[in-house]
Simulated scan of single mutants.
Amino acid sequence: MISGEMPPVPKHVAIIMDGNGRWASERGLPRSVGHSKGVEAVRRTVKAAGDAGVDFLTLFAFSSENWSRPQSEVSDLMGLLRRFVRRDLAELHKSNVRIKIIGDRTDLRGDILPLLLEAEETTRNNTGLTLVIAFNYGSRDEIARATIRLAREVEAGRLKADAITPDLIGAHLDTAGIPDPDLIIRTSGEERLSNFLLWQAAYTEFVFLPQYWPDFGAEAFNEALRIFASRDRRFGGLSAKTAAVAG
């Protein structure tokens, strides 16, 4: 980066919001309190992303594996989702935020799917930050569902098998139309993807931060952006500096 230039801002940041339960346990509090505090961190982070000029922010809200958690905890999480949509949707809409939901929508319980659809429809024409909520999401499941759709196209004679390309597979994923993440942040000190955006993360930069998610906010978000700006992204080729020397 030339001195005086603004550091590059990632177009798409994705976050694995980890550590709510441990945050609560270390304070002798119920896990539900940690999840509630995590919603406050979501609000801070959405604002920080918008202020930084990020175009897409994807949050891993609820994985397809999370249904195996104790029923009481799942109920608490669903209740938080309901309250977040009902209380925050108007403010997000006012802030020109567009909401996009990714994940398997089949067999969602009760009023959850209508709430998610309402959030998408209400903000559909907004032109600011796109907030992507990964709900009932698992990357392997997403890839399998995309593969099934392509197989049915081949079976019906509408597609040749050898016409399937990486771009075509990408166009059948839940994230179709969304650029791949430039940066994935995971909180709580854990360093794994946990079945999140496996296809899309082929050339993503990773930043693992020690903070539990309830403690996350603008300072930690901007620190991750600073780390990202220091990275030399090559996408399988030469860096700009190396290419200049080689040339």
Rank of each mutant, 00 (worst) to 15 (best):
V54R: 01
N66G: 05
E219N: 10
G247E: 12
T130Q: 03
R27F: 00
S32G: 15
K37C: 05
V132Q: 05
V39W: 06
M17A: 06
L225K: 08
A144Y: 09
L131I: 01
L108W: 04
T242S: 14
F216R: 07
A171L: 11
A220D: 15
A151Q: 12
V74H: 03
R87D: 15
S64V: 05
L183S: 12
S32R: 12
I178D: 10
R69I: 02
T147F: 09
A224F: 05
A224G: 10
A201Q: 14
K47I: 07
R109E: 08
V74Q: 03
L168E: 10
E5I: 09
P114F: 11
T123M: 00
N20A: 04
P114I: 12
P10G: 12
P181G: 10
D174I: 05
W23Y: 02
M17I: 02
A48Y: 00
M78V: 04
R86L: 13
L116S: 06
V97I: 10
L183C: 11
R186A: 06
H35I: 02
I2Q: 14
A246L: 13
R226C: 09
A201Y: 04
T175P: 09
T130R: 02
L108E: 04
T187V: 05
I133V: 15
K241S: 14
V9D: 13
D107F: 13
E120D: 08
T242H: 12
Y212V: 06
R234A: 03
R31I: 01
T122L: 04
A151R: 06
R140Y: 01
V245L: 14
Y212P: 01
G38V: 00
N126D: 04
V13A: 07
F62K: 07
S194E: 13
V54C: 01
I227N: 11
D51E: 15
D107G: 14
I184Y: 08
A144H: 12
G38F: 00
G189I: 08
A163W: 08
S36D: 13
L117K: 15
R98S: 03
H35K: 04
D18K: 06
P181K: 08
W213P: 02
S63C: 09
V54N: 00
S75F: 04
R149K: 15
F135H: 13
T187S: 14
D18S: 06
G79L: 05
A144W: 07
K100V: 06
R109L: 07
A151W: 05
N126T: 03
T242V: 08
E205K: 06
G79S: 07
W213I: 02
